[in-house]
């Protein structure tokens, strides 16, 4: 059951990566369609935050994967996004980026450092017996670890929240 959940989250992370890239291109080219800006961006960002939060809780509380220190910092950034984005989507508040981008930016920086430690364990030094950050609990398709999926989620959420801004 956990293997199925892990693979499903990995597939969703790939979908989120595609969303992040496409939306970033649209932002750079200033061609965000109105339907995306007004109706899809914030609900989709909320859905990504909810799936990421639910996934992290499932893997720690059901699968028993003990979160390491860096996992906790990423959780601190991700969990509030479900509420912030949910409220913003409900009220169609295009100013959500003011809160979301700092939180997602902080989470992204931590996720990048976490990925670096996973790829090069000597950066992390030693293995804390309880919860070492270099431990790869999940590695789907050969590269999708938990902080990699978190990074993709943070980037997709940031892009979507910026895309939701209306011209002033």
């Amino acid at each position: 059951m956990i293997a199925v959940a892990q693979r499903s989250f990995a597939v969703l992370a790939l979908v989120a990566a595609v969303i992040a890239v496409v939306v970033t291109v649209l932002l750079v080219r200033r061609r965000v369609p109105v339907w995306l800006r007004d109706e899809v961006a914030l609900p989709l960002a909320t859905a990504i935050a909810v799936v990421a939060t639910g996934g992290s809780l499932l893997l720690s509380e059901v699968a028993g994967y003990v979160p390491c220190e860096l996992c906790w910092y990423q959780r601190i950034a991700m969990y509030p996004l479900t509420v912030v984005l949910g409220v913003a989507a409900w009220h169609r508040d295009d100013r959500a980026y003011r809160v979301v981008t700092p939180l997602a930016g902080f989470g992204s920086v931590i996720a990048v450092w976490h990925i670096a430690i996973e790829r090069n364990p000597s950066l992390g030094g030693v293995c804390d017996p309880a919860a070492p950050c270099s431990l790869r609990w999940v590695e789907e398709f050969g590269f999708l670890t938990l902080p990699t999926m978190a990074l993709i989620a943070f980037l997709a959420i940031t892009a979507l929240t910026l895309a939701a801004r209306r011209p002033s």
Binding site: A3, V4, Q6, R7, S8, F9, A10, V11, V15, P43
Partner: peptide, 22 residues
């Protein structure tokens, strides 16, 4: 949009069921 979202999640779960190995 909601149906598309649910569809994407459903497809991800189906892929998970079909391809995940214990």
């Amino acid at each position: 949009f909601a149906a598309v979202g649910v569809g994407v999640i459903a497809i991800a779960v189906v892929i998970g069921v079909l391809s995940a190995a214990e």
